[in-house]
Write a protein that binds this DNA or RNA. Structure first.
Lengths: 146, 146
DNA sequence: TAATCTTTTGCAACTGAGTGTCATCTGGCA
DNA sequence: TGCCAGATGACACTCAGTTGCAAAAGATTA
């Protein structure tokens, strides 16, 4: 790994505390979903989170998963990624900012980070007379076989 | 405009000829849609293309617009952009590759190009053991007021 | 130009992801 | 433990896009 791209280290902040402080009730479904997100290394979609949650509590509903994802997104606790040709996929926030490389054969998501690219984006936006609110950089590729 | 970002010049290739050669029938709806795409400077969605097409031929249907967009995309004649929180938007292919800055207040799309960023993306993918098939770089921002 | 044979169309029914409604339930505090 | 605003599960609904199908219209040939 050189200067151009470094893999960010995942962190697992305690969102339960933060939500409680914001006056949001920590219910059974929310606890389960938060645990799933804190545990996982991948980028599951709502249906996948629902399926994992069902294994813990059979009575959980898909609507609640969608509602919870929306809530957590608004609170800044998770990030939503709309990769092409599929439903939104989620990851816990709290780690360093990074972009994504999507393996087109497996759907795997590899995180990377390039300060140089971030900096160039800022320059470009400034030249065009804009302030960047956020950006999306996704590389779609296939494992090089050699 | 400096080295870091240059605005690409739009071109208007003759896709009608290319489609005919690929054994695809040039029908009235397709002719109309192709003209709309060749004419426009913006990035309309399917519904907007449908509305513009209706003004020329009242009998055109939205399904045909969707079908035609899909066909043209598969032929490489147009590019589909799924900007966040909205339907797919289209632009004629054939110009130089570029990325997009989306004005969050107006929905306007500004095209830009940075060879430096393209190059860095290649480096990153190579380091991670991947070949890039394509990528998506979108900057979401607001006009700087000063 | 007409006959033929596909391809394409318009329409309407359908799909998938996500949202809204509402009666019921429950977390958290008194 | 009782209360009650906020949260839940069930399900109807929306929105963007796709699909099935009978009718229409390109292209090719006669």
């Amino acid at each position: 790994m050189t200067k151009t791209a470094t893999k960010p280290v995942p962190r697992k902040p305690d969102y339960e505390k933060a939500l409680r402080k914001a006056g949001i009730r920590i219910t059974r479904p929310r606890k389960i979903i938060l645990n799933i997100l804190g545990e996982t290394e991948d980028h599951p979609d709502a249906l996948e989170i629902f399926r994992r949650a069902e294994q813990i509590d059979k009575s959980i509903s898909l609507s609640t998963v969608y509602r919870t994802m929306k809530l957590l997104e608004e609170m800044g606790a998770i990030h939503r990624h709309a990769f092409e040709g599929g439903p939104s996929r989620f990851e816990q926030a709290g780690g360093d900012h990074h972009d994504h490389l999507i393996d087109m054969d497996t759907g795997d998501v590899i995180e990377f980070r390039s300060d140089r690219i971030e900096q160039l984006q800022q320059e470009i936006a400034r030249q065009l007379g804009y302030d960047i609110v956020h950006h999306r950089l996704e590389l779609y590729g296939r494992r090089r076989k050699d």
